[in-house]
Design a protein around this nucleic acid. Structure first.
Length: 966
DNA sequence: CTCTCCCTT
């Protein structure tokens, strides 16, 4: 019963709308395994609805023709056939061939656009919008129906569209949601030769996708010169050449230094002057001069001052105030000389140019993975770029291009400009790739594979931003960053601002950093502009300056009409268009934050809250003022504050920079003063600790030490007190055991420690009394005893106490005397060294000290002042029994030589004499004299006895104590 | 101590 029904469904699926197909097929497969009547009914409805939708699309197919004047119209049949026959084709032809607008129509002719949408991508928003308008016009419909477009901030697309024009960035963003790009049945990637980051990523991705989606067609357009490489990347896809509708351009090479002439080489400015002279002889016509940068343009406009009454000298670069840029598109009566940067090469088309002068140079942005700095150096442009420049004068009639270099130079140049992917930081691309689980980036089929070190560096930045972990997996932060349509550094600032409660301020600032600066400085009104902008300026932070500007403009835009705001912007030197961009970006990000449930703070945030959040995205762009005006940054990089900064005159000790770029010098642009402690806190995960000097910190009963903190080589804190156990628990444990337990340098109330300590003191006292060093087991043995007993995590008094209280085993730490006394010293005669001195009824304490050479060495008798007169000094001569034999020996040895020789060997005489003496009875020397005479018959005369050279420890010391115990 | 190409989610 269900089987034929399922077959019918499978058949009907073929006629469904592409975007539904895969989803419905999956549902059908599930039901085939596990049939359910109710769900089958629902599926049937869904299939019918989708079929109907597709039929509607088919019915909406408009009639169209190809404009006869366009070259591409001649080949439309050939191209349509190629599309039907191949999955990928390349169409190349120069500008003016009409390929951009006609290709979508050719796709319709080839039957595309019904099952799914024909997606057409452009590098620039303005172009996408203009092309969709043009297409809608040619197809006699309104934008938004058959033809839609979608760019940032503006979406006029829907599933009704047969053709959807968008920026390549939009297609990439859609990839995040729909990895299969199921809503499209055809994709046209236009201007692929520009090889932007977006295009290279798309072309790599599409190569993989085409294997999985055999129904998807891909058309790539490119300049002829680049076509082969791209075709090769797509398994030698066919290349269809479409002739351009351009006029011939005569090339003239006028190098600065002519090898055939003895003249001195010209400088660039002189060369421009003579080129203009030469071209004027060819007849009237506007001139477009390509120069590397603003500086050269300013200089050239000065050099060409003398031509001003005959010609309009017009600068043209991206940052040019909008009023000045408009003059380019509204020609006056005079001949125009337009001094332009690369903007005029691709982004802007200057109408009516007859002559081009090409300096052959451009500022090229290159990111150095070695120094992590972006460089903007003047370089020689490629052949492709030079040809593009020359082509700018062949659009309305034959033109002449003067190259300020020679033909050999041209022929020796690189054929193509290096694609952006080889010379930029890849963090943002990698984040997107990881987010859509593209697997190993090394395996990704890029047309030009970026250097492994560049990929590694991109991961490095993502690690620093905590977007990926050590194993290159996306973290929770990384997932959020991938969903924010902004540079990962800036996204990170926003996420950090949630924690510091400064989202409102940081949102305004990050969007300002992502957009272009709306502040204008017209060449001749710089001072006036600076004065107007001065009131927003903050002396500590350029970021705050941006926020001040934001607040002002927001307030004004709420209060004023559109026109009034425009006028205000003009008066205040604010580029209104850029302000709109900033505002739109802000709105878009605010919405994205809302989706992530990140709330904006109502209360103003303070400086620290704002800048700590900003710092989290700029941790590798910090600097320390090392010399006057010169900063030392990460990896020993030195840099200067950009002169346009509000901090330029008052440089702070520590700063962070939104950008670090090398031009004539390494400059930090948009900077703010920071506290080094913030770096320690915000950059915790990147800080390297260099610990040193562990020591026993008696007051805290732990091991203290010091550490130096560095971040990417920069010393953030030269010397910080630390708990050493955190960095080296093993060593700390050793030090703890030695000082706290072995040496007893720990005050505490734990009985086991107290008892062990007093036991050790007893044995030490024994050593003092017996004047020996070898009774107590040595320190190492005591250390080993504790080390064996203590768990590895005991590193301080506190951790010891915790363990001791919780662990019955800890009682085993109790020492006994046998453990403490060395085996060979167990038979020490202690009685001969009494601790109490007795005289009649008097009992006084005797203390012992063993430190030869010291005043305190020997035996000390403590006598209260009150009993001092009662002390029998004669008795004290006998010192203590344990020392008397040594004292006798010393006395014998102290005798004059002639006397002394009667008692050789002296130790034997001392021993025998001692045996015969009665300890403590009468005067020691008198008794000794008697005994010696008994033994030898020799009488020692009284003056021969010397007492002054006797070692100190053989004389009783007296310590008199007054009533207060002093 | 003094200045920078261009895009985009």
């Amino acid at each position: 019963m269900t089987q034929p029904l399922l077959q019918q469904f499978a058949h009907d699926l073929q006629d469904c709308w592409q975007a539904d197909y895969f989803r419905l097929r999956a549902r059908l497969n599930r039901l085939a395994k596990n049939p359910d009547q109710k769900q089958l009914g629902q599926l049937q409805k869904a299939i019918l609805k989708s079929k109907q939708f597709r039929e509607n699309r088919s019915a909406a197919l408009p009639d169209f023709t190809y404009p006869e004047a366009l070259p591409v119209s001649e080949n439309h049949k050939q191209i349509a056939e190629a599309i039907q026959r191949h999955q990928v084709i390349l169409v190349c032809g120069e500008t003016g061939s009409g390929k951009t607008t006609q290709l979508p129509k050719i796709c319709l002719e080839a039957g595309r656009g019904i099952n799914g949408i024909i997606g057409h991508t452009q590098p620039r928003r303005i172009a996408a919008q203009a092309i969709s308008n043009r297409l809608a016009e040619e197809l006699k419909t309104e934008v938004g129906k058959t033809v839609g477009f979608k760019v940032r901030f503006r979406d006029r697309s829907s599933s009704e569209n047969l053709i959807k024009v968008m920026t390549d960035g939009i297609l990439l963003a859609e990839l995040q949601q729909d990895h299969w790009l199921n809503q499209y049945d055809t994709l046209i990637i236009d201007e692929a030769h520009e090889r932007s980051l977006n295009i290279d990523f798309l072309l790599g991705y599409l190569k993989q996708l085409l294997r999985k989606r055999k129904d998807l067609k891909l058309i790539i357009t490119s300049a002829t010169i680049d076509a082969e490489r791209i075709a090769a990347h797509f398994n030698d896809a066919p290349v269809i050449e479409v002739s351009g509708r351009t006029y011939p351009v005569e090339m003239r090479y006028r190098p600065l230094h002519d090898p055939d002439s003895d003249d001195d080489p010209l400088d660039l400015q002189q060369a421009i002057v003579s080129a203009i002279d030469e071209l004027q002889k060819e007849g009237r016509g506007d001139v477009l001069v390509f120069l590397p940068g603003e500086g050269e343009i300013r200089e050239a406009s000065k050099t060409l001052r003398h031509l001003r009454d005959r010609m309009d000298i017009l600068p043209l670069y991206a940052r040019l105030p909008s009023a000045e840029q408009k003059r380019i598109f509204h020609p006056g009566g005079k001949t125009r000389v337009i001094l332009a940067t690369n903007v005029a090469e691709t982004s802007l088309t200057v109408p009516g140019i007859r002559y081009v002068i090409d300096s052959g140079q451009a500022r090229i942005s290159r990111y150095s993975w070695r120094s992590k700095v972006q460089r903007l150096k003047i370089e020689k442009i490629s052949q492709a770029s030079a040809n593009q420049r020359a082509g700018r004068c062949g659009r309305t009639g034959p033109g002449i291009c003067i190259r300020l270099y020679n033909e050999d130079d041209f022929n020796n140049r690189q054929p193509f400009t290096e694609p952006e992917i080889l010379r930029t930081n890849l963090a943002a691309v990698i984040l997107q790739m990881v987010s859509i689980r593209l697997g190993d980036i090394e395996q990704f089929p890029f047309i030009d594979k970026p250097d492994a070190r560049l990929v590694k560096d991109g991961y490095r930045l993502l690690r620093e931003l905590q977007a990926v972990d050590d194993r290159k997996n996306l973290t929770a932060t990384g997932k959020k960053l991938a969903r924010l349509p902004i540079d990962p550094r800036l996204g990170k600032m926003l996420l950090a601002a949630e924690k510091t409660n400064a989202v409102t301020e940081v949102l305004a600032i990050t969007t300002a950093l992502a957009a272009q600066d709306p502040r204008e400085r017209p060449q001749h009104k710089q001072q006036a502009a600076d004065e107007k902008h001065a009131r927003f300026r903050d002396e500590k932070s350029d970021f705050i300056s941006l926020f001040n500007l934001w607040e002002y403009l927001e307030e004004q835009s709420e209060q004023l009409s559109h026109n009034a705001l425009r006028k205000l912007c003009q008066k205040e030197f604010i580029n209104h268009r850029r302000w709109r961009e900033w505002h739109n970006l802000h709105r878009q990000l605010k919405l994205a934050l809302k989706i992530l449930i990140i709330k904006l703070n109502k209360e103003p945030a303070d400086y620290a809250a704002i800048h700590r959040a900003l710092l989290s995205g700029l941790l590798d762009q910090i600097g320390f003022k090392d010399k006057k005006f010169e900063y030392l940054g990460c990896r020993n990089q030195r840099f200067f504050i950009f002169p346009g900064s509000g901090l330029h005159k008052k440089p702070p000790k520590w700063l962070m920079a939104a950008e670090v770029t090398e031009t004539t010098k390494v400059f930090a642009r948009i900077v703010a003063g920071i506290q080094p402690q913030w770096i320690e806190q915000v950059g915790k995960h990147l800080i390297k600790h260099h610990s040193s000097e562990p020591y026993w910190q008696k007051s805290k009963a732990r091991v203290g030490g010091y550490e130096k903190l560095t971040l990417c080589g920069l010393i953030v804190n030269p010397r910080r007190n630390i708990n050493y156990a955190v960095v080296d628990p093993e060593l700390s444990r050793e030090i703890f055991i030695r000082h706290a337990l072995v040496y007893g340098e720990w005050k505490n109330n734990l009985p086991v420690i107290q008892e062990n300590r007093s036991l050790i003191e007893q044995v030490e006292n024994l050593e003092a009394r017996t004047r020996r060093r070898d009774i107590l087991i040595d320190e190492q043995e005591l250390y080993d005893f504790y080390a064996k007993m203590l768990p590895a995590n005991i590193t301080s008094g506190a951790s010891f106490e915790r363990w001791y209280k919780q662990n019955q085993n800890a009682r085993k730490l109790k020492l006994d005397k046998n453990t403490l006394i060395r085996e060979d010293a167990r038979t020490v005669n202690v009685a001969a060294m009494p601790e109490i001195w007795r005289q009649d009824n008097l009992q006084l304490p005797l203390t012992y000290h063993f430190e030869p050479g010291s005043e305190q060495d020997g035996v000390t008798l403590k006598i209260p002042l009150s009993v001092l007169p009662q002390i029998n000094e004669t008795l004290t001569e006998w010192i203590v029994p344990g020392l008397i034999e040594e004292k006798i020996l010393a006395h014998i040895r102290g005798l004059p030589k002639s006397v002394r020789k009667q008692f050789v060997p002296a130790p034997d005489f001392a021993r025998v004499a001692n045996e015969r003496l009665k300890f403590g009875e009468n005067n020691l020397l008198a008794e000794l004299g008697k005994v010696l005479k008994q033994i030898t018959g020799f009488e020692v005369k009284k003056p021969d006895w010397r007492t002054e050279n006797l070692p100190l420890h053989l004389k009783m010391r007296f310590e008199v104590i007054d009533r207060e115990g002093q």
